[in-house]
Simulated scan of single mutants.
Amino acid sequence: MFKRVIILLVLSSILLALVLVRNHTSAPVNDSISNNQVSSKYTTVEYKITKIKGNQYYGKSEDGTDIIFSSKNILSGEKIQIHEVVICYFDKNNLGNGLVKVEKK
């Protein structure tokens, strides 16, 4: 019986030490954390604006793919001109949702 109590105390102290070590470990603090969170939620593609017709924007990426989006997708409210580069965000978990938002680069 005495051996069981000693073994229980040793195992309990090891468990307590592991819990304390885990709680005192901190994550590094820098800008890459917020960027990783954004990139883990969205797939981003850069497009160069080739044409603007009304509230429709036409763009082309470096790999040759085209995109058309309306001004309602531009969340920043910035005025985008022809030949400027924009970043388009697509939902990584559900690409069927289409374009989520557009930001000027």
Rank of each mutant, 00 (worst) to 15 (best):
G59C: 05
I82L: 06
F90R: 00
C88T: 09
K72R: 07
I7V: 15
V21K: 14
E84C: 03
V86A: 02
N55Q: 06
T44V: 10
S61L: 02
K3E: 15
Q56R: 14
V29H: 11
F90M: 04
V102K: 00
G98K: 05
F2E: 12
V5M: 11
D66F: 10
L95C: 00
E103M: 04
K48A: 01
N35R: 14
Q37I: 10
N94P: 03
N35D: 11
S13T: 13
T43H: 07
V38Q: 07
K53Q: 15
N55L: 04
V10C: 08
K41V: 01
I14L: 15
M1K: 11
A17R: 02
E46M: 08
V45A: 07
L95V: 11
S34D: 09
S32W: 10
Y89I: 04
E62Q: 05
K72C: 01
V45D: 06
L16G: 08
G59K: 03
K104E: 03
V19R: 09
L9T: 08
K41L: 07
D31G: 07
L99I: 11
V38M: 08
K92L: 07
Y47N: 01
V29R: 12
H83L: 13
N97K: 15
V19L: 14
K92P: 02
N97S: 08
G54V: 04
I52F: 06
I74T: 03
K105E: 04
K51D: 15
C88K: 02
D91N: 11
S71N: 05
I6W: 05
L99G: 00
T50C: 09
L95D: 06
N97G: 02
K92E: 02
E46K: 12
H83W: 12
I7Q: 14
D31E: 14
N94H: 06
R4Y: 13
Y89F: 13
I6L: 14
H24I: 06
F2M: 09
M1S: 15
S40A: 10
L99V: 06
E84F: 02
T50M: 11
L20Q: 08
Q37Y: 11
Y47Q: 00
Y89P: 00
R4P: 10
K92T: 04
V38L: 14
S70G: 15
G96F: 03
L18P: 09
D66E: 15
K105G: 01
A17L: 15
